[in-house]
Amino acid sequence: MYSLARPFFFLLDPEAAHDLTIWSLHHFGGFIPSVCGSRGKPVEVMGLSFPNRIGLAAGLDKNGEAIDAFANFGFGHIEIGTVTPRPQPGNPKPRLFRLPKAEGIINRMGFNNAGVDNLVANVRSAKFKGILGINIGKNFDTPIEKAADDYLACLDKVYPHASYVTVNISSPNTKNLRQLQGASELDALLAALKARQARLADEHGRYVPLALKIAPDVQSEQLSEMADALRRHRIDGVIATNTTLSREAVAGLPHADETGGLSGAPLRTRSTEVVAELAKLLAGELPIIAVGGVFSGKDALEKLDAGAELVQLYTGLIYKGPGLAAETVKATDAFSRV
């Protein structure tokens, strides 16, 4: 069915198509039957039992408006956000561009969202009882030296409702955000987050894991420093990767020179390289969740073979449709770490 509907959606402005999709799923998602015949093989990651290894990446459902509809796709987990303490409109439009020949998307959305209170209200009203990740960020006008305050404010509010929380310091579309991946900045941020996590665990009587989402545009030396920081602060997981600023794989294509992060098939190879390098650096001390360019079951297995424990989808769903969830779940059912 998606192959019939996709041409219509691709006639629309990309952001209009996205908004229409979320609106439709929010209002009519309850009528969607599960498209995933196999629920997959459960796996323990970050102390949580995931029904299968495939999840929805953050960014598609920023405000948690369509959680129950996405649950029908057969995902083993759903990650919503990125959410910020205060509502913000994001960057000026247009800010979302398709590159169909490369099966890629460039976005410079800028953490557009309705704020953390709105997201929490949506989570409370959802019926979904599975693994829910909530991805948190900072407001665009919060000085980078005070970024930790925004992350802590979000963590306080989402903690009671999340299965795990992802700290997004890798979007290229919020000014200076990637500075937080620097050694001293990252060390200070992770220390603050872990201290707050410990306090919240005592207050709520449950431990909610923290994952860090990183960029693909990092050199080996910086990746090694980040791996050391993840181990030192006992972060529970790492998500690799966010979108890339590189245009090497799409040079010369329409929209290739637009500012923003590139996702989709052009990111596949680099994302997998980062996963593999991280796996060697971390040596199993914390799990890796892979995202970037997964368009088939084969692509998902490639991420697992590189060292990931879980795989997330986003741009692949835009090009391939919701059946991609079923395909990747089925392909990864028999995977086991040797």
Score class of each variant (00 low, 15 high):
Ala300Asp: 04
Ser263Ile: 06
Leu155Asp: 01
Met109Cys: 09
Ser49Lys: 12
Ala306Cys: 10
Pro14Gln: 06
Pro143Asn: 09
Leu119Arg: 03
Leu200Lys: 05
Leu12Cys: 14
Ser163Val: 03
Asn118Trp: 04
Met46Ala: 10
Glu258Gln: 14
Asp61Met: 08
Thr332Leu: 07
Tyr2Ala: 07
Ala326Tyr: 04
Leu281Val: 00
Arg196Lys: 15
Phe50Ala: 02
Asp61Lys: 07
Gly37Ser: 11
Ile318Trp: 14
Pro143Lys: 07
Ala192Thr: 02
Thr166Val: 12
Gln312His: 07
Leu119Tyr: 08
Tyr2Lys: 07
Gln197Pro: 00
Ala57Gln: 06
Trp23Cys: 10
Ala102Lys: 09
Gly74Trp: 01
Phe50Arg: 02
Glu203Arg: 14
Leu152Arg: 11
Ile144Phe: 01
Glu103Trp: 00
Lys194Asn: 10
Ala306Asp: 05
Leu304Trp: 12
Leu20Ile: 11
Val158Leu: 14
Arg270Trp: 00
Glu225His: 13
Pro14Arg: 06
Ala71Ile: 04
His18Leu: 03
Asn139Pro: 05
Pro287Lys: 12
Ala5Trp: 02
Glu44Gln: 11
Gln222Arg: 15
Asp149Arg: 14
Ser296Asn: 02
Phe128Tyr: 15
Tyr159Gln: 09
Pro7Thr: 02
Val35Cys: 11
Tyr314Ile: 11
Ala57Thr: 10
Gly29His: 08
Phe335Tyr: 15
Glu327Met: 03
Ala308Met: 05
Thr243Gly: 01
Pro42Trp: 14
Ile239Phe: 06
Thr259Ala: 15
His27Gly: 01
Gly323Arg: 12
Glu248Arg: 14
His27Gln: 12
Arg232Gly: 06
Val208Met: 12
Phe73Leu: 13
Phe70Gly: 10
Ala195His: 13
Phe10Tyr: 13
Ala16Phe: 04
Arg124Ala: 13
Ala306Asn: 07
Val250Cys: 09
Ile239Thr: 12
Ser184Cys: 00
Lys213Trp: 11
Val83Pro: 02
Pro85Asp: 13
Phe111Tyr: 14
Gly29Phe: 08
Ala229Arg: 14
Leu193Ala: 08
Asp150Ser: 12
Ser3Leu: 10
Gln179Trp: 04
Gly205Tyr: 03
Glu225Arg: 15
Phe335Ser: 03
Gly205Asn: 09
Val167Phe: 08
Leu155Val: 02
His233Pro: 01
Asp150Ile: 13
Asp187Asn: 15
Val329Cys: 10
Asn242Ala: 11
Asn173Ser: 13
Ser49Val: 05
Thr259Met: 12
Thr259Gly: 06
Ala201Arg: 14
Pro172Asp: 07
Phe31Arg: 13
Leu99Ile: 11
Val311Cys: 10
Asp202Ala: 15
Arg196Trp: 08
Phe70Ile: 10
Gly76Val: 08
Gly81His: 07
Glu15Gly: 06
